[in-house]
């Protein structure tokens, strides 16, 4: 009897699958997703990675760049470890991609979870995310130097909020302390959005938010970027707020704070992906980059729009891992 019930299901399932899968398959040999594509964000909602992934979801759907739908899922548990381990565990499933932030390197280093970026298949670098030094407009600071001097005078009572612990924000804070001798109390929050709000509410003195995470508050007249942690100024000339454009904001180096830190916004996919599968996603993201919506996002968030794929990308990631290892070691953030 059990058999008959199985048969029943078998037949019914077959009927359903026939009905729902009856889609014309393209004649070309190029690989295409045959199921909905899961787009994992190893971070919370409202942060930089989340904003980018959701914008991409909108672009892909609006311009019909993919036949299958794209489902965006936040897997932020364990400082993003949840998301990375999920993709790592989906070997051979080409319907899973993940966007990265620096926790691609820092989370396994700080926690010792069994993960390394080499467990994934690199797809492409979409852009590099900048970092700014942000202060509240209630405070008199207009330049990084004024701020750092005040922080020194305050004798270690200035508070710096940032995303997570032993991640990029704290790495930068650590670098500022080393470079200037000023001491900060670093207060970890759950996401970039929450970090910015703590600064708006004057609960901390500064943050190192990504531009996109705090730009809305700059426009609202609450926050002010003092400088970019980059080697040269960005080129976006459109006025954002206070009559200034991103290009008017100096680099921190110009202001005597010689720190450069950019963060990878890259796409990886599950291990064991074939070349055709990687090529599909590379093609997809090339198309995404050509849309006006993407260009607007890049401008709003003052992104560095470097695009990289293939070996160049893999090499870049390897070098970046090395750099993070040094940074984490120097700061004493490595798991014992």
């Amino acid at each position: 009897m059990k058999r008959s019930s199985k048969h029943f299901l078998l037949g019914a399932v077959a009927a359903i699958s026939a009905a729902t899968y009856f889609m014309p398959t393209p004649a070309t040999a190029a690989w295409e997703p045959t199921r909905p594509v899961e787009f994992i964000i190893p971070a919370g909602t409202g942060g930089g990675a989340d904003q980018m992934a959701r914008t991409i979801q909108g672009i892909v759907t609006k311009h019909n760049l993919m036949k299958q739908p794209m489902v965006v899922i936040n897997k932020s548990g364990g400082a993003g470890g949840e998301g990375f381990l999920d993709v790592k565990g989906s070997k051979g499933n080409p319907h899973k991609i993940i966007i990265t932030l620096s926790n691609l390197f820092t989370t396994p280093m700080a926690t010792g979870i069994p993960f390394n970026w080499k467990d994934l298949t690199p797809v492409a670098m979409l852009a590099l995310d900048e970092f700014n030094l942000w202060v509240n407009t209630d405070k008199p600071f207009k330049t990084a130097k004024e701020f750092i001097d005040a922080a020194k005078t305050a004798n270690g009572t200035f508070k710096m909020a940032g995303t997570g612990s032993k991640q990029e924000d704290q790495i930068i804070t650590e670098a500022i302390q080393k470079a200037t001798g000023a001491k900060f109390i670093y207060i970890p929050e759950r996401g970039g959005g929450a970090v910015a709000v703590q600064l708006v509410g004057n609960h901390v003195e500064s943050t190192v938010n990504n531009p996109i995470e705090a730009v809305a508050h700059w426009k609202g007249g609450k926050l002010r970027p003092l400088c970019f942690f980059d080697s040269k100024r960005v080129t976006y000339k459109e006025v954002v707020a206070e009559g200034k454009s991103w290009a008017d904001i100096p680099t921190c180096k110009e202001q005597g704070l010689d720190i450069v830190y950019l963060m990878l916004r890259g796409i990886f996919m599950s291990p064991g992906a074939t070349k055709e599968q990687v090529d599909f996603y590379v093609g997809l993201f090339r198309k995404v980059r050509d849309t006006p919506e993407w260009k607007k996002l890049m401008e709003d968030g003052a992104f560095n729009t470097t695009f990289m794929t293939g070996d160049a990308f893999t090499k870049w990631v390897a070098a970046e891992e090395k750099r993070h290892e040094e940074l984490m070691k120097a700061a004493g953030f490595m798991a014992k």
Partner: peptide, 19 residues
């Protein structure tokens, strides 16, 4: 609520005081 936030972002609406 994050879903709504995502909705805003998808339509290029940046949540924040300026909204």
């Amino acid at each position: 609520a994050a879903v709504l936030l995502g909705g805003l972002l998808i339509w290029g609406l940046q949540p924040g005081p300026m909204l």
